[in-house]
Amino acid sequence: MAAPLEVTGSDTEAQPEAVLAGVDGKAIQGRSLGQIAWMRLKRDKVALAGGVIVILLILLAIFGPLLVQSPLAYHQNLIDPTYNRPKTGIWHTGISADHLLGVEPGTGRDLLSRIVHGARISLLVSFLATLLSVVIGTILGITAGYFGGWVDMLISRAMDAFLAFPLLLFAIALVAVISDGSFGLSGNGLRIGVLVVVIGFFNWPYIGRIIRGQTLSLREREFVDAARSMGARNSYILFKEILPNLVAPILVYATLLIPTNILFEAALSFLGVGVIPPTPSWGGMLTLAVPIYSSDPMYMIVPGVAIFITVLAFNLLGDGLRDALDPRAK
């Protein structure tokens, strides 16, 4: 009979069970895909910084108007009637303890209040428009990718038509022809509704193409074949098997679509087809700053920096989410 092998080394090396259980006695726990993505996202400090800024902007848009003064309040006593600009502040901007970013020339309205209230308009329009684009693009994209054939051809040609549509010109024309009091709405409620529909409805092909491409790959996977072999209906396969695997690209692209919609809303407001003055919006503030930019550039810098920071924060967060949710990322 062969002699028994002699166990050498430490107790941990001699007992594989101890290694499996952990030196400290804790059982090894598996991590879900969400936990793995969160661990990756936490390592990306730039994306976290963008996420923090996004959260602060959302809180500012919700609660900020309750903390600042009215954006419509005129302070004519701060305006020099001779030069039609603030009397005090750096470069005659009216910056003081009561007006941290100064006041507008001619009206004396507080710039900080208008920036805060403008954030509510920009984020509201961009979020609702993005939600509309995501819903329409996801439904049509997953339908085209799964069924294929004439359904895919019809939806794909519709995507091409929408992508070729002159959206900016259409938005300007639509606002011009729609009278106040249409569809049971009036004033800024009607303008915001038109902006949401125009931006959201005509931008769905961008996310629709991505979802269609992902669905073309997923419909050939084994779990779809297994569900189909067990007699699952198409609606079950679409919304129970394929759609959960599309959450990551939908979330990433939605995060990247929001800043695009913010820029588009600002462009429409800059062209005068956004919210109705004197309701503040970032694009409208840029419009008012154009005539006095050469003498007082501060009034264009403030809303411009607000748009820049917001768009940059969403883009950084979107890039970080894309890397964190990519299963091929290391």
Results as ranks from 00 to 15, higher is better:
residue 1 M to S: 15
residue 18 A to P: 00
residue 22 G to L: 13
residue 23 V to P: 04
residue 26 K to Q: 13
residue 26 K to F: 04
residue 31 R to N: 09
residue 34 G to N: 10
residue 35 Q to M: 10
residue 36 I to M: 11
residue 41 L to C: 11
residue 47 A to I: 07
residue 59 L to C: 12
residue 65 P to Y: 03
residue 66 L to E: 12
residue 70 S to R: 11
residue 70 S to K: 08
residue 72 L to I: 14
residue 76 Q to R: 13
residue 84 N to P: 11
residue 85 R to K: 13
residue 91 W to Y: 11
residue 99 H to T: 03
residue 100 L to D: 06
residue 101 L to W: 05
residue 101 L to P: 01
residue 103 V to P: 03
residue 105 P to V: 07
residue 108 G to L: 03
residue 117 H to L: 09
residue 123 L to K: 03
residue 127 F to H: 07
residue 129 A to T: 07
residue 130 T to R: 00
residue 131 L to W: 02
residue 132 L to K: 08
residue 133 S to L: 10
residue 137 G to E: 02
residue 141 G to S: 08
residue 142 I to V: 12
residue 144 A to D: 02
residue 150 W to L: 14
residue 155 I to G: 06
residue 159 M to W: 14
residue 159 M to Q: 05
residue 163 L to W: 09
residue 164 A to G: 14
residue 166 P to N: 10
residue 167 L to R: 13
residue 170 F to C: 07
residue 180 D to G: 13
residue 191 R to L: 10
residue 194 V to D: 05
residue 202 F to P: 01
residue 203 N to F: 13
residue 203 N to Y: 12
residue 204 W to N: 02
residue 210 I to P: 02
residue 213 G to R: 07
residue 217 S to P: 02
residue 226 A to F: 14
residue 233 R to S: 13
residue 248 A to I: 00
residue 249 P to W: 05
residue 254 A to Y: 00
residue 256 L to N: 00
residue 257 L to E: 08
residue 263 L to W: 02
residue 265 E to R: 05
residue 272 G to Y: 08
residue 275 V to G: 00
residue 276 I to L: 15
residue 277 P to R: 11
residue 285 M to V: 05
residue 289 A to E: 08
residue 290 V to K: 13
residue 290 V to G: 06
residue 293 Y to P: 01
residue 301 I to H: 07
residue 303 P to M: 03
residue 307 I to L: 14
residue 310 T to S: 15
residue 311 V to L: 12
residue 312 L to D: 04
residue 320 G to D: 10
residue 321 L to G: 02
residue 323 D to H: 04
residue 326 D to M: 06
